[in-house]
Amino acid sequence: MKKLGIVVTLIIFTGAVWGFLRTKSDDTNIEKLVLTGSSTVAPLAAEIGKRFESLHTNVRVDVQTGGSSRGVSDARTGLADIGMVSRALKDDEKGLHSFTIALDGISIILNKANPVQSLNKQQIIDIYTGKTLNWKAVGGNDAPITVVNKAEGRSTLELFLHYFGLKNTDVKPQVVIGDNQQGIKTVVGNPDAIGYVSVGTAEYEASQGAAIKLLPLDGIAASIENVRNRSFPLSRPLNLVTRAEPVGLAKAFIEFAGSPQVNDLIEAQYFVPVPR
């Protein structure tokens, strides 16, 4: 009886270990589409992939991250069928075929009670690097600035840093937040806070009465409209790239990702669908 207990446990244990170490085996009957690249595009591509799989039962969409550069190089070498790139292609990458599936824009937000109406690029850089510590220096109240930054790995952080030419190690935040909602709640609760979130979320929350205001950049209002017509500077395209003109499965997937059928998935991730 004692032995039985041990044997049963051993079986369960080895089963668990086996399941835990087992790698996925390839099934030859199934067509596979491999996407690699930007971790910004990946969650969206995975969602689109799920819907694509439900429409094509013999297809598996495999999405792997590794950054936009990996997306470019994997598409070039053919390691991936499609590369994911969360920026406009550079000049030496123009040989690739690229398809913009969505746009991403972020807005600087302040509490509604803050009298500051606009900030220029250098002022924002000085605030985020801790050179400007009081709102008085940029025409506001005599109050210490609460800098709200995003957690590492978030695409909003990456775009923000890239646009302002900063490194995350230079940023001196007082608060670090995870998602957009937490950012908005933090700025609503603190009249002296400055933060940044997706334009989509900020515009929606402001319209729902949240006590925030969206700062214009270079005189251009932060709005979904201005992201869509590509005039808002703090935005970027999310692209799918291929080595040659896409055919077969890759073509079908890219067409699907560019169709209005996925607009709800794009908006759910706070991106802006491209005008079609």
């Binding site: 009886m1 004692k2 039985l4 207990g5 041990i6 049963v8 446990t9 369960i12 244990f13 668990a16």
Partner: peptide, 13 residues
């Protein structure tokens, strides 16, 4: 006893 021993080992595992 065997059953309980199995459960205990499982939680430890």
């Amino acid at each position: 006893a065997a059953l309980l021993r199995g459960c205990a080992l499982l939680s430890a595992a």
